[in-house]
Design a protein around this nucleic acid. Structure first.
Lengths: 219, 219
DNA sequence: ACAGTTCAACTGTACTACAGTTCTCTTCAT
DNA sequence: ATGAAGAGAACTGTAGTACAGTTGAACTGT
């Protein structure tokens, strides 16, 4: 602990900060799926130049929350059925691949802790927190793959998914969520890799079915 | 075949075209690892405005060929040992996960064709072509995962890797390359998933060792 | 060889401008 | 009412200029 801890000149650009801020607001629902991000409006409101906003939005594109359409600018991604399907397929592949491996004690510990956190959140009933912990649990599973690149990739998908979930609010009760994940955790703790794979597959399958139903109803 | 085939108004932006062009040039070695992309120079040379170049480079960042450093601008990625290691680890996880699945006949066919292409290239001895076909073979393996998102992710890594390989020129002979891949293909064709996984693991392992050695010698 | 200084080059950001595209609203014909 | 058409507003994509702050490299004195 040095005497200079915490002292740090701003080691970031305005555009980066704007990207972070915009990201937060989008995740919080200030912009819905499919909404356009109008540059001049945002620039005026935040008191920065339009090209700076443009850069910020390009940075946002990196995280996958928006995509560019020619002559229409940045558009917030929308949960189309195909998109949701593709997202969950990728998740399933990664998580089952992870479950097929033998986790290190530390990794097993991290998964267990993530589960405990989920249980805590479920008891309070705080829905956004539950979603957060749910996704963190799965991130801990993917970490068993021991690959930072895959961790990052999964984290990006998680961000996208969390956004969809805030929009779609799926219907499972907290108790069901906990029960689902407990089965997965048990399989891991028992060292039964086949069962872990199967549980994860089942869990993701029901999740995607639910989501697709919510999507269909929204029409 | 309509009378209007091929007629297409440019459905892309200048920045996108610039990004594509720059990407090509980087892949071709016009910029080496660690080189900075100087905005004003490029803008002047190509006759576009600097902010357009900036956008182009931000788009480039999406594909992973450059990354931004504060107050230094865009820098071409460099093959550090950690980076190469991380890349190959992610590859190994994805490819072995794919090999653990049962490929559809079409997928098996695609893998076989990719191998044949590799053999053709090896016979001509055209090194860049060999690298291309090599990577295409592995892309075909990952396709067994049946996930477009993972396909895209792998393709992005492939782009990065191809860039490194053009810089590093590893030492395997074409014959060795073909032999290596033939073993993998055989395991797939035999439907022996365990052997396929093992062969892939071995192949990637030797690749990464070779690359790391080349890296060490370059110092 | 080394620390300090200086200066040119470059990035990050702001502001202005304008052509071309998309969106919206109104008008007109069915 | 409904839909087609057209006009105008709003917005994006791009160009160009400007300037403060940072970085890197040459230069200086030690």
């Amino acid at each position: 602990m040095s005497a200079l801890d915490g002292l740090e000149v701003r080691r970031t650009t305005t555009a980066q900060q704007l990207a972070d801020g915009l990201s937060e607001r989008i995740m919080a629902g200030a912009f819905g799926p499919g909404d356009r991000l109008r540059e001049s409006a945002i620039a005026a409101e935040l008191g920065v130049a339009r090209n700076t906003i443009r850069e910020a939005v390009r940075i946002l594109e990196l995280t996958g929350l928006v995509r560019y359409e020619v002559n229409r600018g940045a558009v917030v991604i929308a949960p189309t059925p195909e998109n949701v399907e593709a997202l969950y397929t990728a998740r399933e592949r990664l998580e089952t691949a992870a479950a097929a491996r033998t986790p290190s004690p530390a990794q097993l510990d991290a998964i267990t802790r993530a589960f405990d956190d989920l249980v805590d959140a479920a008891q309070t009933g705080d829905l956004p927190a539950i979603v957060d912990r749910d996704l963190a649990f799965h991130q801990a599973i993917v970490a068993v793959l021991d690959s930072t690149r895959l961790d990052d990739f999964f984290a990006a998908m998680t961000k996208e998914l969390r956004f969809y979930l805030t929009v779609l609010t799926k219907s499972e009760t907290p108790d069901e969520v906990v029960a689902d994940h407990r089965r997965i955790l048990d399989a891991f703790l028992a060292g039964d890799r086949d069962r872990a794979v199967a549980e994860i597959r089942a869990h993701i399958d029901t999740s995607v079915q639910q989501l697709k139903q919510v999507l269909a109803e929204r029409r």
